[in-house]
Design a protein around this nucleic acid. Structure first.
Lengths: 139, 139
DNA sequence: CTTTGTGCAAATTCTTTGCACCAAA
DNA sequence: TTTGGTGCAAAGAATTTGCACAAAG
């Protein structure tokens, strides 16, 4: 059911076209931090009229409206996450998979902000190796 | 004087060629998180034989040897930082400038790591607007 | 010599843009 | 009938690769 996807879009002021709903629903039910390419390839079999430009357009719109979060870790592919709660990410240097990590017990943090920067959002990510990959890597 | 640059390279097991020294020295005295392009353009006038490929080669080598840190925030340009102490970054959404931010009083952090991921490094960055840019942005 | 560093040009990859068409309000 | 969503092809930008030459030990 894409009623959840629909209300999510409406909540953030995004008009729910069929393609937008499909992508939103895909993101909500596949919290694997997919790339634009991944999303396109997954949906194309079911929506043969879908174009990659549209996927990029829609992801950009979603990000601007803050419906989803864009995750940039390796500078190669931008990944997308329908889970916009505050959490950290991990990416394996070898296979590239991205996992969620939830930090516990983080004390209130203060920081010097001598330049009076306006801070919008905070991203935390770790890099390393997943158990499968670490075996096959000479480190 | 590039004696600091030289000892830095030797410390991390990088043979100090002239180009490597020049780039290392540039990074150590310009903690502005430059891009590969920025480094190339800054050094080219003084080293006319320098090629961009070499800049990329050397930066990649430095990063692998952990002489410097690569900073990926916007997925557009990788930036490089000779300051490898643990600190956070800020990038302005408008002008793209990157600043350092130092977090104080962070309590020991625990996290669930159900997948037994091997965590190598941690990056923290904020996005927002610098004081100059926030004026000219309708938000 | 043999290894390593460098450089040119071409290729690759991800993403954006220009523009035209189509659908909905 | 005006706005906005979509799609194709081309452009763009950052980085990598293949290969050849040069330098160093």
């Amino acid at each position: 059911m894409n009623t959840e996807a629909k209300s999510r879009l409406l909540k953030f002021g995004v008009k729910p076209s069929l393609h937008r709903l499909a992508i939103m629903e895909y993101l909500m039910s596949n919290l694997i931090h997919p790339t634009a390419d991944h999303i396109y390839n997954s949906l194309f079999p079911f929506i043969p009229t879908l174009s990659k430009t549209t996927v990029y357009n829609i992801l950009k719109l979603f990000e601007e409206k803050k419906v989803i979060a864009a995750i940039v870790i390796d500078g190669k592919n931008t990944r997308y996450d329908a889970d916009i709660s505050q959490h950290a990410h991990f990416q394996c240097r070898k296979c590239g998979v991205v996992h969620d990590l939830r930090l516990n017990d983080m004390a209130p943090v203060t920081m010097d902000n001598p330049d009076n920067l306006i801070l919008d959002d905070c991203h935390i990510y770790f890099r390393g190796y997943c158990p499968d990959c670490v075996k096959s890597v000479s480190r």
